[in-house]
Computed example of a mutant assay.
Amino acid sequence: MSLIKCDSLSKSYGSKLALDSVSIELKAGAPVALVGPNGAGKTTLFSLLCGYLLPSAGSVTIMGEKPGSTKLLGQVASLPQDATLDPNLSLLTQFTLFGTLQGLSTKQAKAESLRVLSLVDLADVAHQKPHSLSHGMSKRASIAQALIGSPKLVLLDEPTAGLDPANAKVIRELVRSLSGNITFVISSHNLDELEKLCDQVLYLDMGKLGQSVSIQENMTDEYLTISMLECEQEQFIAAVEALKGIKSVTRKQENEFSIHYSAEAIRDLEVQLFTLLSQNGWKYRALLKGRTLEDTLFS
């Protein structure tokens, strides 16, 4: 059974079509990225999946049930980008309340609250109110709230927006560690971060599903992406293109190049590249098998 299935799903606000005949079928598993420009329909899609909105046309099911069904209670959680916790209640008090709303006893809800706060290293501030927490701690607390009851599907909207690198890393590691039991759908503009966490990437634009990309499948034997520290760009491109089996070398941005080659004609490209770099005194920052997510979506 599919975790999420959308069939020609559409949503209109008056004359504005926010989501236009989107068809998606997702299985449980690795985190899924949802990307697209502002106004693309990402928040509308999340709202439909949560049952906050009803479709204007088409259909959507989660684990075979309509969003908002009582059968999905505790199975689906969502964290909007600007979600805030109640400033007047301690984390433990409001998390315990959320747990009881999912059908847990007060004792069970308190234990569950401490469990999810421990997941984000906040058990020691369980009795504090949200206003006493830093921005990073508040974001981690909000994510913990979304994990109450061990849902099978969690929708995260910009979970690391505005966070310092240390807190962003904590959240990435948390998502990675829980992905065996929870399927995360993550909406973000940070493509580098999504590339580290997700395999499948859904691209929405103007309400339409433009692409569905598998990052693993994108890591083919026909592309390499290299980021250089020092080199003369035109000389570098000419030198690499002169190697046997190279189809093209394209500069994607400052000192980053995509190399398209024939895997049958050149089987030791990495070795030849390192030799070339050594001969010319060029230094590189990173070498990536395949193409970057940005390159795949927008080239």
Rank of each mutant, 00 (worst) to 15 (best):
residue 220 T to K: 10
residue 244 K to S: 14
residue 241 E to W: 02
residue 220 T to L: 09
residue 253 Q to Y: 09
residue 212 S to N: 01
residue 224 L to D: 13
residue 248 S to D: 08
residue 243 L to T: 07
residue 254 E to T: 00
residue 223 Y to E: 14
residue 234 E to I: 05
residue 229 L to N: 06
residue 234 E to V: 02
residue 265 A to V: 10
residue 218 N to C: 05
residue 215 I to N: 07
residue 218 N to S: 13
residue 253 Q to T: 06
residue 257 F to K: 03
residue 273 L to R: 00
residue 220 T to F: 04
residue 206 M to E: 13
residue 208 K to R: 14
residue 252 K to I: 03
residue 221 D to N: 05
residue 240 V to S: 05
residue 247 K to D: 05
residue 273 L to M: 11
residue 246 I to M: 14
residue 216 Q to Y: 12
residue 233 Q to C: 11
residue 210 G to R: 02
residue 258 S to V: 10
residue 249 V to P: 05
residue 236 F to I: 10
residue 271 V to Q: 12
residue 251 R to L: 13
residue 225 T to L: 01
residue 221 D to P: 00
residue 214 S to Q: 12
residue 232 E to N: 08
residue 262 S to M: 07
residue 209 L to N: 09
residue 269 L to V: 11
residue 229 L to V: 06
residue 254 E to F: 00
residue 259 I to F: 06
residue 214 S to T: 09
residue 225 T to A: 06
residue 266 I to E: 09
residue 267 R to N: 13
residue 264 E to T: 12
residue 210 G to P: 00
residue 235 Q to T: 14
residue 225 T to D: 13
residue 257 F to S: 08
residue 250 T to M: 05
residue 238 A to Y: 04
residue 268 D to N: 15
residue 222 E to I: 02
residue 215 I to C: 12
residue 251 R to C: 15
residue 222 E to C: 09
residue 276 L to M: 07
residue 259 I to P: 01
residue 228 M to I: 13
residue 276 L to D: 13
residue 224 L to E: 12
residue 260 H to M: 11
residue 220 T to A: 12
residue 263 A to Q: 04
residue 247 K to R: 01
residue 222 E to D: 14
residue 269 L to C: 08
residue 237 I to T: 00
residue 273 L to A: 07
residue 230 E to F: 04
residue 233 Q to L: 12
residue 274 F to G: 11
residue 228 M to G: 03
residue 237 I to Q: 05
residue 247 K to N: 07
residue 268 D to G: 14
residue 236 F to Q: 10
residue 263 A to L: 11
residue 220 T to V: 05
residue 266 I to H: 03
residue 235 Q to V: 10
residue 225 T to E: 15
residue 234 E to N: 03
residue 272 Q to T: 11
residue 237 I to G: 06
residue 243 L to F: 11
residue 230 E to A: 09
residue 235 Q to E: 13
residue 229 L to D: 03
residue 275 T to E: 15
residue 235 Q to K: 07
residue 250 T to V: 00
residue 232 E to L: 04
residue 273 L to F: 04
residue 276 L to H: 01
residue 218 N to Y: 03
residue 230 E to H: 01
residue 272 Q to L: 14
residue 222 E to S: 14
residue 219 M to A: 14
residue 266 I to C: 08
residue 216 Q to G: 11
residue 209 L to C: 13
residue 213 V to E: 15
residue 210 G to A: 06
residue 265 A to W: 00
residue 223 Y to R: 14
residue 248 S to Y: 03
residue 221 D to T: 05
residue 262 S to G: 08
residue 245 G to Y: 04
residue 260 H to P: 00
residue 264 E to A: 15
residue 233 Q to Y: 04
residue 268 D to L: 15
residue 266 I to N: 07
residue 276 L to Q: 06
residue 218 N to E: 15
residue 267 R to P: 02
residue 275 T to Q: 11
residue 252 K to E: 12
residue 232 E to W: 00
residue 255 N to F: 03
residue 208 K to P: 03
residue 247 K to W: 01
residue 240 V to Q: 01
residue 223 Y to W: 09
